[in-house]
Amino acid sequence: MKTVVIQGLSQAYSNLVHMFAEFLPRLLVMLVIVAVGLVVAYALKTILRAVLHVTRLDRLSEEAGASRFLRMAALPSMTELLSRSLFWVTWSGFILIGISVLGVAGLQEQISRLFLLLPAIFVAILILFLGLVTANFLSRAALLAAVNAGYPSPKLLSWSIRFVIWALAISMALEQVGVARQTVIAAFSIVFGAFMFGLAIAFGLGGKDLARDFLERSLGEKKREKYEEPQPL
C-alpha cells in the first residue's frame, strides 16, 4: 500500500515536472513574442502617427466634422485614435499568437476564429467612420441650406439626414461582422420603415395646409408672397 502511494506520488511529481518542463519554454516563447509585439506595435504606432501628421489628417477630420464628434465622445484626435488603434490591433495579434504557442487545448480554435474576424472588424470600423463623416457633412450642408433658404425646422431636416445615414452605417457594420445578421436586417427595416412612416404621418397631418398652398400656387390660383433682397453686387 505504502509503495503504491509513493509510486503514485512520484508519478504525479514526475508528470508535474514534465508538464512544467514542457510549459516553461512555451511560456518563455510567449513572453518573448508578446515583448517583440509590444516593440513592433509601438514602432508602427510612431510611424503611422508621423505619416498622418504629414498628411494633415486631423485638418481633414476637422473639416469633415468628425473631430467634433470625437471630442464630444471624449476621444483623442483622429491621428491619435488611428495610431493607438493600430498599436492595440498589432499588439493584440502578437498576444494571440503568443497564447496559441502555449498549446492550451480549446483556445486554439477560439484564437483562429478571432483571427478570421479581425479583417471584418476592421472593415466595420471603417464603415462606421465613413458613415460618421458622411452623416456629419451632409447634415450640416442640409442645415445651412435650409437656414439660408428660410425653410421651417431646419434642425429636424438635418437630424433626419444624420439619423438615416447613421442607421444605415451601423446596420452595414454589424452585418459586416456577422452579428445576428437576420436580426440586424429586420431591426434596420423596422427602424427605417417606422421613421419613414412617422415622417409621412407628420408631413401628412402637419403639412396639409402647406400641400394645399403648394397645389393652389401650382394651379395658378394663388400668388406666392415674394421676398426679395437687394441685389448684393
Binding site: 476637422e62 473639416e63 450640416r140 445651412l144 437656414v147
Partner: peptide
C-alpha cells in the same frame, strides 16, 4: 485654420450678413 469645411464656413456667414444688412 479650416475649422470646418470651407464652403460650409462661408455659407454660415449668410445669416450674419443679413443681420448687418
Amino acid at each position: 485654420h479650416a475649422v470646418l469645411n470651407r464652403d460650409h464656413l462661408v455659407q454660415a456667414l449668410v445669416p450674419l450678413y443679413r443681420g448687418r444688412l
